[in-house]
Design a protein around this nucleic acid. Structure first.
Lengths: 198, 198
DNA sequence: TCTCGAAATGGAACGTGTTCCCATTATGTC
DNA sequence: GACATAATGGGAACACGTTCCATTTCGAGA
C-alpha cells in the first residue's frame, strides 16, 4: 500500500478532479445504502466509471477512501455552520446544539454513519494525514460553537474541544456497535458536554 | 456469521475450557508479536492446536475473538486493582493513577494494544455482548478508582466514569493511528480527567 | 499533426477472513 | 459395550481488499 493519497492540489487536470469527485460520490452513495460492507472497491470503481487500478491510484486503500469522504462531509458541515447563527446563550449550549444537529444528520443516514465511523476507528498510521485533517475539522467545529465570534482560540479551549470530540467519537462508536440507542447517545453527549464545557 | 460466541458457561467439559483458553492465549501471543494483522485465523488455529472450523465454533469472527481477549485482559486488570491500594488522595488523582498504570502496561506492548484497540473500535452490532462486557469492566475500573471504599456508586458517578472511558478509548485510538505520542496521550487524558472528575 | 510519457483500463492473481463439507473422534445414554 | 449425537479435524472453496501487468487512451510539447 502506498503511503499517500492524491490530494486535491496534486490533481492538475479537471478530468482528474472530476474523477476524484465521482469516486467520493460513489463512496457516499454506497455507504449510505449499505454501510461499510457495501463500500466494496469493485463496486465503487464501477459506479464511478473508473477502473479498479485507477481507484487505487487515487485512494490507496478502502480506509483512505472512506476517511477522505468523511473529511469532505465535515468540510461541508463546517461551511454550513460558519454561515449560520448557532442557537444557545452559553458555550455549552451552543456545543450541545451543534452536536445535536450533527447527530441528527447522522441519525437520518445510519448506514453512512456506520461506514464512516468504522473507517475512522479502524484506520492505522498509514492514514494519519487524513485522520489529522478530520480531527482538526472536528476541533474547529467545536471551538467555533464555543466562541462563534472569535477567530483565535487558546490552548485551553482546544483541549476542551478535543475532549468533547473524544466523547463524540466514543458515543458514535457506542451507537454503531449497538451499545446504546440514539436517544441515549444524545443524552450522554449532552451530559458530558455540560461536565466539560464551562 | 453466527450471532453468539460460546461463553464460558456454555462449555461443559474441561477439555473445552482448555481449548478456549489455548485459543485466547494464542491470540494474545500473536497480537503481541505482530499486532492486528498478525492475528490470522489460520495462525491462531495452528498455534492453539485446533482446527480452523473449531476456532470458528468458539469465536464466530476475528473481532469476537479479539474483543473477548480484551475482556479477559480487563478482567485480570480489574482483579489486580481490586486487591491493591490505589495511590492518590482525590478521586481525580486515583483515576489518573489507574489510567497511567493501565496505559504504561499498554505502552509496554504496543502491538497488543493496537490489535485489541482496533478490534474494539471496528466491532459492529454482532459483537454487542462482548463490547458491553468490556464497557462494563472499564466503567467499574474507573468508578472503583474514584471510590475504592464504596461497593455501590450512583448514576452520576457512572456517567462520569463513562466519559472518562470515552476519553480513554479515543486517546488510545489517537495513539494507535499515530496522531499522538504516548506522552501526549497521557497528558491529554490527565487534563481531561481533571476537567471531568471533581 | 506526430510522438512520447503519464494516466487509465481491464482483468488476472494473491492473501486472508469466512463458510462449507464430511470423515473421524469424543461424549453421554441405554 | 453399543449406539446416537455432538464436537473436532482437515481442507477445499468463496468473497473481497489489494497488487500487478499488458494494453490502450490522453494530453502536452516538438
Amino acid at each position: 500500500m502506498s503511503i499517500h493519497a492524491l490530494t486535491t492540489e496534486d490533481l492538475g487536470s479537471s478530468a482528474q478532479r472530476e474523477r476524484r469527485e465521482r469516486i467520493l460520490d460513489a463512496t457516499i452513495t454506497l455507504a449510505s445504502q449499505g454501510g461499510f460492507d457495501a463500500v466494496q472497491m469493485r463496486a465503487v470503481a464501477d459506479r464511478a466509471d473508473v477502473a479498479l487500478g485507477t481507484l487505487y491510484r487515487y485512494f490507496p486503500s478502502k480506509i483512505h477512501l472512506l476517511v477522505t469522504a468523511l473529511a469532505r462531509e465535515f468540510e461541508r458541515t463546517e461551511a454550513a455552520l460558519a454561515d449560520s447563527r448557532i442557537e444557545g446563550d452559553t458555550p455549552a449550549d451552543r456545543v450541545v446544539t451543534v452536536l445535536r444537529w450533527t447527530t441528527s444528520g447522522l441519525e437520518d443516514d445510519p448506514h453512512l454513519t456506520e461506514a464512516l465511523t468504522r473507517a475512522f476507528m479502524f484506520a492505522d498510521r498509514s492514514v494519519a494525514t487524513e485522520i489529522r485533517l478530520v480531527a482538526r475539522l472536528l476541533t474547529r467545529i467545536v471551538t467555533h460553537a464555543m466562541h462563534p465570534d472569535r477567530d483565535e482560540v487558546d490552548d485551553e479551549d482546544v483541549a476542551i474541544a478535543r475532549v468533547v470530540g473524544d466523547v463524540w467519537l466514543a458515543s458514535l462508536v457506542g451507537c454503531v456497535t449497538g451499545r446504546s440507542t440514539t436517544a441515549e447517545t444524545v443524552a450522554h453527549m449532552e451530559r458530558a458536554v455540560r461536565l466539560i464545557v464551562r
